[in-house]
C-alpha cells in the first residue's frame, strides 16, 4: 500500500543518470495539470472566498472580494466547541478503530498464514461493507439503535439507560458510527504491514527470554509501526472532516455537531460562504500541523 510511505524517506537511486528529456515532461504534464486544475485552483479560490466581506450594496448571500482576516477570528470564537469536538471524536474513533483492527489484522496477516483461502475470505469480509452505500449502512445503524428498538428498550430495562435516555443523538452513537465506517481504512494498512512481519524475529525474541507479551511490545509493535501510522492517518483525517455520522439526519444531534456539519450548514443553509471557507481552511491547517507533528514524533524514518 502506497500509504506506508508516509513519513519515510524515499531513497531514490541517485547513481542512475537523471533523465530530463521531453518524455519526462510529457509524462508529468497530465498529473501536474490535474493538480493545478483540481487542487491548487480550488484551494486558492477557497482562501479568497474565506476573506470576502458581505456586499454592502448587495442583498442576502452576496459577497465582495476583500482581505477580511477577521473572518477567521469570528469563526474560531463562534465554533471553537465544534472544532474541539471534531478532533476529540476523531481521536476517540481512531483509537477505537486501532484497538479493534489490530487483533483482526494480526489474525489475518500472521495467524492465518497457513490458510491463504481464509486470509482472502477475511479480507473480502473487511472490504465487503463498501459494496453497500455508506449512507444506507449509517441509516441502518440509526434503525438498530432507534428509540423503539429492542436494544434500547433492553438497555432501559436493565437500568443501564434511564427511561428517558436514548442512544441516537449521543456522542457515543456518533463515535460508534465513525469507528464502524472507518475501520477498513485502519485494518487494510495494518494488514499489509503485519502480513510482511517476519515471524523469525518473534522466535528470536522468545529465544532471548522475552515472554509473549514482551515479544509483542518490543518486536511486533515496533515492526508494525508503519502500518499503525498509515492506518491512523487514513482514519483520523477523514473522520475529523466527516459530516454524515454526526448530522442530525443520521446518528447525531445538534449537540454532537462537528466542524463538517457547521461548514455544511454555513454553506448550504445560511449561505455564509466566507465563514464556511474559513472553517475549511482551519480544518485543513490543523490537520496538517497535527499530522506532521505525529509523523515526526513517531519516528517512522527509523523503520526499515
Amino acid at each position: 500500500m502506497a500509504f506506508t510511505a508516509f513519513g519515510s524517506n524515499n531513497r531514490s537511486p541517485s547513481n542512475k543518470p537523471r533523465r530530463t528529456g521531453k518524455v519526462v515532461i510529457a509524462l508529468l504534464a497530465p498529473g501536474l495539470a490535474y493538480l493545478a486544475m483540481f487542487f491548487l485552483t480550488p484551494l486558492f479560490a477557497l482562501i479568497m472566498v474565506s476573506l470576502e466581506t458581505p456586499d454592502p450594496a448587495g442583498g442576502f448571500a452576496e459577497y465582495v472580494p476583500a482581505f477580511e482576516f477577521g473572518n477567521y477570528a469570528n469563526v474560531v470564537s463562534e465554533y471553537l466547541p465544534h472544532i474541539l469536538r471534531s478532533f476529540g471524536y476523531a481521536l476517540a474513533a481512531t483509537v477505537l478503530a486501532l484497538l479493534i483492527s489490530y487483533p483482526l489484522a494480526y489474525f489475518i496477516g500472521v495467524k492465518a498464514r497457513p490458510w491463504p483461502m481464509l486470509q482472502k475470505l477475511m479480507l473480502t469480509l473487511v472490504i465487503a461493507p463498501f459494496f453497500i452505500s455508506f449512507l444506507l449502512r449509517t441509516l441502518a445503524w440509526k434503525q438498530i439503535f432507534s428509540n423503539e428498538s429492542w436494544i434500547v428498550s433492553s438497555l432501559q430495562d436493565l437500568g443501564i439507560l434511564d427511561q428517558t435516555q436514548y442512544v441516537v443523538g449521543t456522542p457515543f452513537m456518533v463515535i460508534f458510527g465513525l469507528t464502524y465506517n472507518f475501520i477498513p481504512f485502519m485494518t487494510l494498512p495494518l494488514y499489509t504491514s503485519l502480513e510482511r512481519l517476519d515471524t523469525r524475529y518473534l522466535e528470536a525474541g522468545s529465544d532471548l527470554y522475552a515472554t509473549p507479551a514482551k515479544v509483542f511490545r518490543k518486536v511486533t509493535l515496533p515492526l508494525s509501526m508503519p502500518g499503525i501510522i498509515s492506518g491512523t492517518l487514513l482514519t483520523f483525517i477523514p473522520i475529523a472532516g466527516d459530516y454524515v455520522n454526526a448530522s442530525g439526519d443520521f446518528l447525531g444531534s445538534s449537540s454532537t455537531a462537528m466542524i463538517g456539519n457547521v461548514i455544511e450548514s454555513n454553506y448550504l443553509q445560511i449561505n455564509d460562504y466566507p465563514s464556511a471557507s474559513a472553517l475549511s481552511v482551519i480544518l485543513m491547517g490543523v490537520i496538517l500541523v497535527l499530522v506532521s507533528v505525529y509523523v515526526r514524533k513517531s519516528g517512522t524514518e527509523d523503520l526499515l
Binding site: Y201, S206, D207, L208, Y209, T211, P222, L223, L303, L304
Partner: peptide, 30 residues
C-alpha cells in the same frame, strides 16, 4: 523463553528496529 538455551539463527534474525548494541542487550534486559 523459559529454556536456558539461545540460538544463532540461520537468517540471524537480528531485530531491524534496534541498534547492534540493543540487539545484544535484548536477552539481558529480559
Amino acid at each position: 523463553h523459559e529454556r536456558p538455551v539461545n540460538t544463532v539463527f540461520q537468517s540471524y534474525a537480528l531485530f531491524p528496529h534496534m541498534s547492534v548494541l540493543e540487539n545484544v542487550a535484548f536477552g539481558l534486559r529480559q
